[in-house]
C-alpha cells in the first residue's frame, strides 16, 4: 500500500501538543489529588479499632522474635477470656444509623477528587475531539491485526486505511493509558520513590478507572456506606488467627549463629 504523507504541521500542532498536554494534565491530576486528599477527618474510635487489629497482625507475623513469655503476655492482652481486647468489641451501629450520622466531609472529599478526575479527563477528551477531530496523527512502527482498527482509528472511518495509522482521539487515549511510567518518573525526579505511602498512593491513582480515583488511600475506605465490617466477626477471626500461631522463639541460638557467621567470614 502506498504510504500516506502527512503534513508536517500536523506534527507540530497536533501530535506534540496532545502529548505534552496529556502528560502535564496527568501530572497536575496527581498533585490535585494529593491536595484534595490531605484534609480527611478520622474518627478516633475507628482508628483505635483498626490499630488494634494491626497490632494483633504485627504480633502474629513477628511472634518468633519474642521470647515465649513475652509472646504469651501479649497474646493474653488480646485473647484472654472475657477481659482480652478482642472479647469486648464495641457496639457497631446498624448500617442505616451509621449512614445517617456519617461525617459528610468524607463523602465530599471523595466526590471532589472524582470530580477532578472527570473534569480533567473529560475536558481533555472534549478538547482533543473539538480541536483535532479527523486528524491522522501517528503511525505505529509495528504491524497490527485488523481488530485494532476500531481502537486506533476512532473518529476516522476509512475502511481502506492501513491499520497502523492512529487518529488524534485514539492517540489521546493511548497516551492516557501509557503515561503512567513517565508521570511517575517525573514525580520522583530527584531519585527513587522515597516514601512507601506516597508511592502506594501514586500507584493507586494511576488506575484509569474513575471510580477508583477518589478512594486511593486506605483512610478513605471507612467513609463508604455499607463497608463497615461487623467488628464482632473480625475480632473473632483475629482471635482464632492468634490462637493458631505456633510460637517458636527464633533468637534462642542467636549467639551461636553470630559466632558461626563471624568464623565463616574470617575464613574467607
Amino acid at each position: 500500500m502506498e504510504p500516506i504523507t502527512l503534513d508536517e504541521n500536523i506534527c507540530y500542532y497536533v501530535l506534540i501538543p496532545i502529548f505534552i498536554v496529556c502528560i502535564m494534565v496527568s501530572f497536575l491530576r496527581q498533585k490535585i489529588l494529593v491536595v484534595l486528599k490531605s484534609d480527611t477527618k478520622v474518627d478516633l474510635k475507628e482508628v483505635k479499632n483498626s490499630q488494634l487489629l494491626t497490632r494483633a497482625k504485627v504480633l502474629r507475623v513477628n511472634a518468633d522474635f519474642l521470647p515465649e513469655k513475652a509472646f504469651r503476655s501479649r497474646k493474653a492482652f488480646f485473647n484472654k477470656k472475657d477481659t482480652g481486647a478482642f472479647w469486648n468489641p464495641p457496639d457497631t451501629p446498624n448500617p442505616l444509623q451509621a449512614m445517617a450520622t456519617q461525617d459528610p466531609t468524607q463523602v465530599m472529599g471523595m466526590l471532589k477528587s472524582q470530580m477532578a478526575f472527570v473534569i480533567l479527563n473529560g475536558g481533555l477528551a472534549y478538547w482533543v475531539h473539538f480541536l483535532f477531530s479527523g486528524f491522522l496523527v501517528a503511525k505505529a512502527p509495528f504491524p497490527l491485526t485488523y481488530k485494532f482498527k476500531f481502537m486506533l482509528q476512532r473518529g476516522v472511518d476509512l475502511s481502506s486505511l492501513d491499520v497502523t495509522y492512529v487518529s488524534s482521539l485514539s492517540w489521546y487515549f493511548f497516551i492516557l493509558f501509557a503515561s503512567g511510567g513517565i508521570v511517575s518518573l517525573l514525580l520522583n525526579l530527584r531519585g527513587a520513590p522515597q516514601h512507601e505511602q506516597e508511592a502506594q498512593d501514586i500507584q493507586a491513582m494511576d488506575m484509569i478507572n474513575p471510580m477508583m480515583g477518589g478512594m486511593a488511600g486506605p483512610t478513605a475506605m471507612p467513609g463508604m456506606p455499607g463497608s463497615q465490617p461487623d467488628l464482632k466477626k473480625v475480632y473473632q477471626q483475629e482471635r482464632d488467627n492468634l490462637d493458631i500461631v505456633s510460637h517458636d522463639f527464633a533468637l534462642a541460638t542467636v549467639e551461636q549463629r553470630l559466632v558461626q557467621k563471624w568464623t565463616k567470614q574470617k575464613q574467607h
Partner: peptide, 17 residues
C-alpha cells in the same frame, strides 16, 4: 507501555511527516 509510547512518538516525529 512507556516504551511503545516513546517509540511511536519518536518514530512518527522523525519519519512519517
Amino acid at each position: 507501555m512507556s516504551f511503545i509510547l516513546f517509540w511511536t512518538l519518536a518514530y512518527d516525529m522523525v519519519y512519517i511527516f
